[in-house]
Design a protein around this nucleic acid. Structure first.
Lengths: 344, 344
DNA sequence: TTGAAAGCGATACCAC
DNA sequence: GTGGTATCGCTTTCAA
């Protein structure tokens, strides 16, 4: 059986021919606010529906150079926060008429190759959940002259704006919270070494503890921001590191891995034996089996901020924009509350 | 301060002018396998890099009608399975040179509007995690003549192919598993009424129970596929429905909500008092605080299958394709194992 | 190997 | 209100 030829879309010229009008008339019929007589409009619409005419946006992209496409780069693997973020982005982008091209990447290595591909689609901007890590990456990306919004990055340029959580401040708050809950020996469970967010959270936590007179801080190092990594790192390092009674984790997924290692592998009770806290406030954090104290970083707010910055960048390309810091707030749940009546 | 004009990309004509060659020569330089002399090529490449030339894919789309864009429609809200699916899709689509346009939609209502927008970008296909529910939707979508792949839908047409889990068979297996574990009074926690997947799972479960001589099945009805909905429905309906000793849930997220309602709201132990099982095998299902028995539906396999079907559809547009059923398998964990040594 | 020219499908501007 | 025409940036075909 012979393969069909690829589907051929009807063009405005086809519609014009069938309707017995000019191609311009067809274009006007589909342009809101353009002047067409009712008679012409009717003829056009009928012909259009007969041919299943679907106007193409492609020629407009060619003329205008604007595609109404926003590229979204996600750094995959296991953080539900990304899913929330993506969905929120979709919802806020939709009414503005943008569509999202979504890509996954493991690290900012090779980001330039990605950017080149995206440039060939003439995307209007790139929003990257992946941090731009090196100044090499940053300058290569800058060459594309595409507005880039990134999160928790230290690098920036007129074309790269970073939006960050108030990692240091919120982590200081967390230190105070844990101190107030009676913790004495603290641990911080880091994410991958190249994560600026993780480092800033550690720094803020450490500083606040020092200011409260606590000099010692056990630092556990997870390889990935995953449950499994949180679990294994906690299981292997907890005892030899000297049994802290409070663990603050670089994000929620790590914290849940840590909690389960404590409970099911080390036979400890959370929060009775050890307090555990995280960062992000993913939906799973409020699931009662974890009920994790954490720092909220509402995706709605994050996206709203990102789009506000984006609009400015699109209005004034190449203009230096200020970096933005969001304020995350501590959400107290039973993972750090010994007096809670919660069963486990 | 005056706003800059929008970024203007260099065109092949610009490069040609600077290099002192024809525009065709530039095009050939960037077309693998085209015949250009080394000298010309060198001149072109130098000029291109000076102008930061990035070939546009847009004119090709216009000429060929193929955009190398695949639209992915997700039905939002709280099912981590979507995130896994999306990531896997990204990874398998990338080496084939496709980019994804991602959209969220609440239901297949308004799907045609979405499809129209996607058609205007000349997407090559649509992959929809959302089920196509009504035959009205189906026929309207068919009019676009865009290959559509959907999941767990009953509707189909030459342009719409559905890929389904073996919902009935796997659910029958689950019934046998729960019977073998000693359950006597069964409940099924449904998802939204308009979900075909949920209905097929219920049907398979009920039939298998009947074949085993169990006539009674309590059916609980959740409004959404969310943790919260699973929690509330279980909490409110469990007792009045007559205390089952095994609950099979239409998906994992519901199951986790159910587990927590049993534990923290009703004071029951899982699995000692009640066995709980789900469907999907999301990553959270293997987190030890839940350790949920469920049916795997590996995203890798799902995506691999989807793309195999897609390739056929693209090769033979409008040709009737066979629907596909995947085989999911039961994964037994401690949520249905009373003798497990797991602590909680 | 090279350059000139046609063509894709829309919008915008121009006379009429 | 209408139709003709230029235009965007490529790939492809055809002559040289």
């Amino acid at each position: 059986m012979k393969a069909h030829p690829a589907r051929k879309y009807a063009s405005s010229t086809d519609v014009a021919r069938l309707a017995g009008v000019s191609q311009s008339a067809v274009s006007r019929t589909f342009t809101p606010g353009a002047s067409v007589s009712a008679a012409t409009r009717a003829k056009v619409l009928q012909a259009a529906s007969a041919l299943e005419y679907q106007p193409s946006i492609i020629p407009q992209i060619m003329l205008s150079g604007k595609s109404k496409l926003i590229a979204v780069v996600l750094g995959g693997l296991g953080n539900p926060y990304y899913a929330e973020f993506l969905q929120e982005l979709a919802q806020q982008l939709e009414p503005r008429g943008y569509k999202m091209i979504v890509l996954y990447a493991q690290s900012d290595y090779g980001f330039e190759v990605l950017a080149a591909q995206l440039a060939s689609y003439r995307v209007d901007a790139i929003i990257s959940a992946l941090a731009v890590l090196s100044s090499t990456s940053a300058s290569e990306l800058t060459a594309f002259k595409i507005p880039i919004i990134t999160f928790n990055s230290d690098e920036r340029s007129p074309w790269i704006v970073s939006i960050s959580a108030n990692n240091r401040h919120a982590s200081a708050q967390m230190a105070q919270h844990l101190l107030a809950r009676g913790a004495k020996r603290f641990a911080f469970l880091c994410g991958p070494v190249d994560s600026p967010a993780s480092q800033h959270r550690l720094a803020g936590f450490r500083t606040a503890l020092q200011q409260a007179g606590v000099e010692q801080l056990i630092v556990l190092q997870a390889d990935h921001f995953t449950y499994e990594s949180g679990f294994e790192t906690t299981k292997q390092c907890f005892v030899e590191a000297g049994k802290p009674d409070a663990i603050y984790c670089a994000n929620d997924v790590l914290a849940m891995g840590a909690m389960d290692a404590l409970r099911f592998s080390l036979g400890l009770n959370v929060p009775k034996d050890v307090l555990v806290a995280g960062f992000d406030d993913i939906p799973e954090a409020s699931w009662l089996s974890y009920d994790l104290t954490t720092i909220t970083q509402p995706p709605v707010l994050l996206v709203k901020t990102a789009l506000r910055v984006l609009e400015k960048m699109l209005a004034q390309p190449g203009q230096k924009q200020l970096s933005v810091t969001l304020k995350g707030e501590l959400v107290e749940r039973s993972s750090t509350n010994r007096s809670s009546s919660r069963k486990a």
